[in-house]
Simulated assay, not measured.
Amino acid sequence: MRHAQAGNRYYSGPVSDHFDGTRFFNPGGEEPRAFLDLLRWRFNGARATWPSRVESPYPSAVPQPRIDDLRITMVGHATMLIQVAGLNILTDPVWSERASPVRFAGPKRVIEPGIAFGALPKIDLILLSHNHYDHLDVETLRQLHAAHDPLVVTPLGNDTILADSVPGMRVITGDWGDKVAVNERATVHIEPAHHWSARGTRDRRMALWASFVVETPAGRIYHIGDTGFHDGINYREAARLYGSFRLAVLPIGAYEPRWFMKGQHQGPEEAVEGMVLCNAAFAAGHHWSTFQLTDEAIDAPRQALLAALAARDIAASRFRPMLAGESWDVPPRA
């Protein structure tokens, strides 16, 4: 862990093309909008009404201990269990009732987790994309540390948060372009995403955000926790570096209104374009139907995704907007 110095509570390190010495940024991209824009959005009167509780059409999943090939199971929002080549991976794990720094306010879960916490198989690895509360939940991480002692791979600065909140958790941090050998069969590459970070009002962009590429004998997986589309730059670069992917795990929700969300959350149409640009054979859609973060209706991401696939004559079976409890044995690349 690199200890932060004055000006940045999480990280200190050399200036780079995405770090100015105090804050991280998106090269050539957009940064979060100002507070007045936030107020303009929150009081626009366009927020759809979500149900307070919904039932998934899928029963709570009970995963097998290990999978030799590739299976993905939706827990909810950005939390997914990826079982690949004998490795059990959780992405951005959140089992809490709210995505919030407090238990009495903030976005509330409308659907039960698709896997009961006690039904999890032994978790080997957590991919932690950034520090927003709907992705980094310290209470869930404490429980995972106690029950599974997993390794966490996360971008720069987030180790400081975990060291304070979950003492003893095994954490490896890296910058964009770094890689971590998880075992003799799996390597995780830390790659760019177009997003930002904050846990409060005074730490904006002080910890890095990232996507991940997981290389295994069962195929290559591209996982993005949160991203704006950014003209497809990062998708094209992923294809240049890695050639193709068996599976891309892509966010499809929390995108309205576009004038406010475009720089941080891609929409379903952009997710389809991203799948094409990065040469993914299949894609799993997440970041929807669990916590209401933005204005669109609860089912709008699925409807928009299916329409975008049809418009491009892409089979709906290639890109699944996954619901809590749903498991998918991902087919091999043709």
Results as ranks from 00 to 15, higher is better:
1 M>P: 09
1 M>Y: 11
3 H>S: 07
4 A>E: 13
8 N>H: 10
9 R>H: 13
10 Y>M: 06
26 N>Y: 02
27 P>L: 01
28 G>Y: 14
28 G>D: 10
32 P>I: 03
33 R>P: 00
35 F>D: 05
36 L>Y: 15
37 D>L: 13
41 W>Y: 07
43 F>N: 12
45 G>L: 02
45 G>E: 00
48 A>I: 10
54 V>P: 00
55 E>A: 13
56 S>W: 01
59 P>Q: 04
59 P>W: 02
62 V>P: 08
66 R>C: 03
67 I>W: 08
67 I>C: 13
68 D>V: 07
68 D>I: 07
74 M>I: 05
76 G>Q: 06
76 G>Y: 01
76 G>H: 04
80 M>T: 05
83 Q>G: 11
84 V>A: 10
89 I>E: 04
91 T>M: 08
93 P>V: 12
93 P>M: 07
93 P>K: 10
94 V>T: 08
96 S>T: 09
98 R>F: 04
101 P>R: 14
103 R>F: 14
104 F>H: 05
104 F>S: 04
107 P>C: 10
111 I>K: 02
113 P>T: 12
116 A>S: 12
119 A>N: 15
122 K>W: 04
123 I>N: 03
124 D>V: 03
128 L>P: 03
130 H>L: 14
130 H>P: 07
132 H>N: 00
133 Y>P: 00
133 Y>C: 05
137 D>C: 12
139 E>P: 00
140 T>Q: 04
140 T>H: 03
141 L>D: 06
154 T>S: 11
158 N>P: 08
163 A>Y: 14
165 S>R: 13
167 P>D: 03
168 G>M: 00
170 R>Y: 06
171 V>F: 06
176 W>M: 04
177 G>H: 07
178 D>H: 11
179 K>T: 14
179 K>S: 15
180 V>A: 08
180 V>F: 04
182 V>C: 00
183 N>T: 14
185 R>Y: 13
186 A>I: 04
189 H>C: 02
190 I>C: 02
190 I>F: 00
191 E>P: 08
191 E>H: 10
191 E>F: 14
192 P>N: 06
193 A>G: 02
194 H>W: 11
199 R>M: 10
201 T>D: 15
205 R>W: 12
205 R>D: 15
206 M>T: 12
208 L>H: 06
211 S>E: 03
211 S>L: 06
216 T>E: 09
220 R>K: 15
221 I>Y: 07
222 Y>H: 03
223 H>L: 14
224 I>T: 10
224 I>Q: 05
229 F>W: 05
229 F>N: 02
231 D>W: 08
233 I>G: 06
239 A>E: 00
240 R>C: 07
241 L>P: 00
242 Y>A: 09
244 S>Q: 11
245 F>A: 07
245 F>I: 09
247 L>F: 08
247 L>K: 05
248 A>P: 07
248 A>Y: 03
249 V>P: 01
254 A>L: 13
256 E>L: 15
257 P>N: 09
262 K>D: 12
262 K>V: 14
268 P>F: 01
273 E>W: 15
274 G>D: 10
282 F>T: 05
284 A>D: 03
286 H>V: 10
286 H>Y: 11
288 W>S: 05
290 T>M: 05
292 Q>G: 06
293 L>G: 13
295 D>W: 10
295 D>Q: 10
296 E>I: 01
299 D>P: 01
301 P>Y: 07
304 A>D: 07
312 R>M: 12
313 D>G: 01
316 A>R: 15
316 A>F: 11
319 F>H: 02
325 G>P: 02
329 D>P: 01
332 P>I: 12
